[in-house]
Design a protein around this nucleic acid. Structure first.
Lengths: 119, 119
DNA sequence: TCTTGACCTGGAGTACGCTCCAGATGATAT
DNA sequence: ATATCATCTGGAGCGTACTCCAGGTCAAGA
């Protein structure tokens, strides 16, 4: 797959895909003889995971460390799990704050509903 | 209340409080004769709301517009409600993405649990 | 072969939301 | 009165995560 196709498939710009590779967020993508990126299933798998995590706000740094450990292979499982647990806790914390804001928004919206209905 | 006290009370730095005021995210705070900020209940109310919304990731721009409309007074309720509904939708969308990531993290963590237990 | 469009790299620029700083002034304890 | 600390303003700087660009190479159709 070319970068244009991959970009379309995952809804990330070509620049973002190159950026992710450049900073080591995804492993080096295989190239054609001419040096053009040719995304394979392995690359796509990483991209898909990264897209999911990034869309939820998981920090790039954590994902880089996790990916590096995966590529290092055995013996790194403990630390990998630790990273995932950390990110899980961060996500939960943020979701709680969002829930509080959501409740507050709902309350205010209900108020405006009443005010505007009374008009 | 001084800025130091307000900072402590809401867990925002003095710099952040001044920044919020500077950009119009909260209305101008009353001053002593000497020009020192003296946070009153109205100021604190705005700060508390803003802190809640910002901690959930609501964009500053939306909060500025909402605050400006509130200060404009009557006739702006429709637009105010619209803003709140927009932000509500954005929050929900982000929470869904986070939930998807969370599920994925849980799945992976369970995997590592198994791997590490088997060792 | 030529042209046109996609892709390459390295590096600079951008948006957001703070965060820090300098130099000056205000407030407070002695 | 003086020293010390808090606060003031305007403006520069920073971290994160992209996003854009220039100048060059690759590839596919006519």
């Amino acid at each position: 797959m070319t970068i244009a196709e991959t970009s379309k498939k995952y809804g990330l710009t070509a620049d973002t895909l190159r950026y992710y590779e450049r900073i080591g967020l995804i492993p080096p993508v295989p190239r054609t003889k001419g040096g053009v990126r040719n995304y394979d299933d392995a690359s796509c798998g990483w991209i898909e995971l990264v897209r999911c995590m990034r869309s939820a706000g998981v920090q790039i740094e954590a994902l880089i460390e996790y990916g590096a450990l995966c590529r290092q292979g055995e013996g790194t499982e403990e630390r990998r799990k630790e990273i995932l647990l950390e990110q899980r806790a961060l996500l939960l914390g943020r979701m709680e704050k969002m829930q509080r804001s959501l409740d507050r928004l709902d309350y205010k919206i209900a108020n405006y509903d009443q005010i505007l209905r009374g008009k």
